[in-house]
Structure formats: C-alpha cells, structure tokens
Write a protein that binds this DNA or RNA. Structure first.
Length: 479
RNA sequence: CGGGAUGUAGCGCAGGUGGUAGCGCGCGUGGUUCGGGACCACGAGGCCGCAGGUUCGAAUCCUGUCAUUCCGACCA
C-alpha cells in the first residue's frame, strides 16, 4: 500500500481492474478453487483457516450471550417451507430440490435449506410450552444452498458456509433487544477482529428479509465504492410463531404466541476481508484473523547456523501462542517474500548470516512493509507489539476510507451526480415511499443500504421526490 | 434469466486460410545461487471442455451442450 513497487506480475493492479484483481488474489492466495459443480467452490486450507478463525472468535462471543449450538437437517419438506407465505415467496426462486431417494421418486420433494427458519420453527413448536422455556437461543454453523444465477468466489456462491442463530422470546421487546444485541456482536467482531468498520442500521421494508418484521444490517464499504451487506439480524415478531403455532403459557396461564429472531453471517466476510485490506501484492489480513501471523524466512539458509536459528525462532513463536510458519524451501528469498505477502501473512521475519552476526533479525509488516530490526532475545514481544499496531492501523485506515466516502445529497440532481461520480455511501433523506427506492434503483442502480441508527436531519424533503422526509438513509451501489 | 468474452499440459497463453500440438512459468533430478519472484543442464506432462455433424483427415469449419468470467436483474 505504502509501496507502489510491484513485485508480482500475476496480480492485476487494483486500479487497472478491480474485479480482476479480486479474482487474481483469491487464486494466488490459494483461498479457493473452482469445482465441477456450478457455482460451488472448494475452500482451500488458507481460505478455510480464515473461516475457522472467524468461527472460533464469533462462537465464543455468541456463547457469552447465552447462545447454544445445535445442528439441523439440511433437507426441508416442501410443505414445511410453505408455511410462512412471505418466506417461501422470498426463497422459492432459488432453492434446490431433492426429488429422488435412490431410484425412487419421493412422495414429497425436499428442498436443500436456503436458510433454516422453518426447521427451527418446526422444532420450537414442540419444545416450547411455558414461559419457563423462554428464551431459547440456538445457533448452527452449517452450509446453505441458494441457486444463484451468477456467482463470485466468497461474495456469492451456490453453496456457502454461515451461521444462523434462531431465538425465541416471550415478548416483542425481548426479541427486539436480542436482534439488536446480535447485530452489535457482529459489528464489534468486525471492528475488533476483522478490522472492518461497518455502517449499521435498519433495512427498509423493500430490502428486509422475507418474513421479517424488521431487518438490521451491517454494511461495509469496498474500495470500489460498493457496499457489501456483511451480516443481518432479523426481528420476526410473532409472524412465524403464528404460521407454525409456536405458543407458550404465560405466568397468568394464558396462551401466547412467541416472538422470534434470526441472525446470520457468512463466508462472504472473507470477501470483505480480501477487498478492504488487500493490495496489489495480494491478500493482507489483520493479525487477529490471519491463519499464519508470522512467517520466518531464512536468507542464505545453507550458511552455517541460519536454518537452526530460523527454526529456533519459529519454535519460540509457536510456544508463545503465535500462529507461525517457516519457509525453508529452496526458493529465493524474493520469491518467499512475495509468497508470504500474497497469502496475507501479517509479519515476516527475515533472518540471514548478517543478522546472525549482529544478533538480530528483521521483521516486516505486511500492511505497510515497515521494517523493524529486532534483537534475537526480544522477538516475541516485538512481534506482539507489531501485530497490535498493525491491527489498529488497519482498522484506522479502513475507517478513514469509509468516513471519507460518505457523502450527502439534498436533492435528486445532486444525488444522481454524486452516486455516479463519488464511489461510496450517499446520505439522503427519504419520504418512506417504496416508489422512491424503486426509482432510484432503476435510474442509478443504487439501493437503500440502511436507515442508520444515528439519525441526522440533513434536509426536510425526500432526496428523490421532494415530499416531506421521514428518515435519513444511506444509499449506495451494492454487491 | 438476458447480453458479451473465454475453454488447448498444474497455471498463463500461441496455433485458427483443416494434415494429428507448441511457448513461458511451474513440476522432477543434479549442480551453482540466496537481503524483493536467481541460473544452467537433463527430463516428465495434453486423444486441444464435452457430444454430435461436415471431411480421406478437425484443436481449427458447423450445431448443440457444459463450465468459467465480465455486465445487468435476484440474493448473505
């Protein structure tokens, strides 16, 4: 980023062609490869390890809020899927169907879950009877299938990995609180671990989840100015409960419908990581999420003592709980540097005969290529310090980018002009009418991303139609 | 699902006026190298996406199909 010199020819520069850059990085960093099934991808070790780190950290955060993990079947009978009207309508066009078991045609076809609301509801109706059974907070880590027309690695694939939390509560207020709570867990996680700043808010009715009463979202901004919906949390009210008959007896011995939420976040976040932090050298990962945090690279490794010392450093790092690797292949140092950078390894330690003599090594940060000389007896603490700095610097840079790409418009002419010229979010007042959303989408391809929690009044009238405005909306082009 | 592009060795590509396949990187072995993708020598690897058709003969021409990719509509 700081250094414009290009070491790797195989990666198209971001400026030249951003989408090509993305594809190149995904391939060169060995995050995934294409499979023989349309729209499905193989997530390779370097990519899957990112997901595992996401899971590990998030799962802990979920459990701290009282969530328990379960596993639901991957098949949903057609009749079950159809119980909630809006929900089916939303998902029907993109579900995959199983029609045969072995040679025999099934009496009722099964859909491969595109999401599991219906299965959870089917379970909850049987296990919830009393207010004492509430709340129920279940989550599952699984894959879901949505038959997408066009696919892109991590951003949109026919099958993808995610987690889906499904909770049941006694009251609307409890459900609402849980919905917001989980969105906050997401945003905090994105900030602290992924170093990605998010804009959070509520989806408009047009953009909300099929079957939800309210959908909350966190939206990240990509370097090409497009928004990426990165995690959503839904308040279902009692809509699903009524469709599925989820009822409990309250303290007054009265039968009540339960209130529900669901919230999900997917491997799409890996796409966000790639785009937000990557550069022309490849992937750049915040230390907290990087599968390999430090790679030890011996220089002139056949020289006396070099490989031994490199090995010692590697062991020392591992012993200190740092995710480390060592590249003792017989490639040239330059090759190893580039390889480590493409794969997003946060720090690399160069150790050669010169260093050995001086009793030091060189530590290089992936994000800005800053070099630090470090005594051989203070490697672990220096590494930890550099990783901490890098983590916060990466967030700060991303935050600065986000902040500087939020513009505002008060009339339609200005809005259209800015949405086309200035990549990013445009703040604009909105009257609340779907017609304005549709017009804007048709004429500019931009959509309402969210109604931010932090409302301001930048004008009295709708940016589209000029009628009295009700809400401030973040608009943008989206992935 | 509409429009464009591309499928030839692991990867990137050439060959396209029909005559049975080539280059670079990578890979294997040996050696010299090593602080930003080093070099030499030898070697292995492809019935040209798949299925039909035209032809004495198809990577090449025709039809279909599948996949990837880009641009739209749909979505995490």
């Amino acid at each position: 980023m700081a250094n414009n010199k290009k070491f790797v020819e195989e990666i198209t520069s971001r400026e030249e062609d951003f989408t090509q850059w993305y594809t190149d990085v995904v391939k060169k960093a060995e995050l995934m490869s294409y499979s023989s099934v349309k729209g499905c991808m193989v997530i390779k070790p370097n990519g899957y390890a990112i997901w595992e780190n996401i899971q590990k950290d998030l799962d802990k955060r979920f459990k701290e809020t009282g969530v328990e993990n379960v596993y639901m079947p991957m098949f949903i009978p057609e009749s079950l899927l159809q119980k909630e009207k809006d929900h089916v309508e939303g998902f029907a066009p993109e579900v995959a169907w199983v029609t045969h078991g072995g040679e025999e045609e099934l009496q009722e076809r099964l859909c491969v879950r595109p999401t599991s609301e219906t299965l959870f509801c089917d379970l909850y109706k049987d296990i919830i009877h009393s207010y004492r059974d509430l709340p129920k907070c279940y989550n599952q880590w699984c894959s879901v299938v949505r038959w997408e027309k066009t696919t892109r690695p991590f951003l949109r694939s026919s099958e993808f990995l995610w987690q889906e939390g499904h909770t049941v509560h006694a009251t609307y207020e409890d459900a609402e609180a849980r919905t917001i709570q989980m969105l906050d867990v997401y945003v905090k996680f994105a900030k602290e671990v992924l170093a990605i700043p998010m804009v959070k808010g509520q989806k408009t009715d047009k953009e909300k989840f099929a079957g939800a009463e309210a959908t909350y979202t966190m939206e990240a901004l990509m370097p090409d100015g497009k928004a990426l919906q990165s995690g959503t949390s839904h308040n279902f009210g009692d809509g699903f409960a009524k469709a599925f008959g989820i009822q409990y007896t309250d303290k007054n011995n009265k039968l009540q419908y339960a209130y529900q939420t669901s919230w999900g976040l997917s491997t799409r976040l890996i796409g966000a990581l790639i785009m937000v932090h990557g550069d022309d050298a490849g992937l750049c990962l915040p230390p907290k999420i990087a599968p390999v945090q430090v790679c030890v690279i011996p220089i002139q490794q056949k020289k006396e003592g070099v490989l031994d010392k490199a090995g010692e450093i590697y062991e020392e790092l591992k012993a200190a709980g740092i995710r480390a690797s060592i590249d003792d292949s017989d490639k040239s140092p330059g090759w190893k540097f580039s390889e480590a950078e493409m794969r997003g390894i946060s720090l690399r330690i160069e150790i050669g005969p010169k260093d050995l003599q001086a009793g030091k090594c060189v530590i290089v940060r992936r994000d800005n290529r800053d070099k630090t000389e470090c005594g051989l007896d203070e490697i672990v603490e220096t590494v930890n310090l550099l990783m901490n700095n890098m983590q916060t610097d990466m967030y700060d840079r991303a935050k600065e980018y986000l902040d500087s790409h939020i513009d505002s418009a008060t009339n339609y002419g200005e809005f259209v002009d800015k949405i086309n010229k200035n990549p990013g979010f445009i703040k604009g007042m909105w009257c609340g009418d779907v017609a304005c959303e549709e017009k804007i989408k048709e004429e500019t391809t931009a959509t309402s991303r969210c109604i931010p929690f932090e409302q301001e009044k930048i004008a009295d009238t709708c940016v589209c139609c000029g009628k009295p405005a009700k809400k401030l909306v973040y608009w943008g082009k989206a992935y």
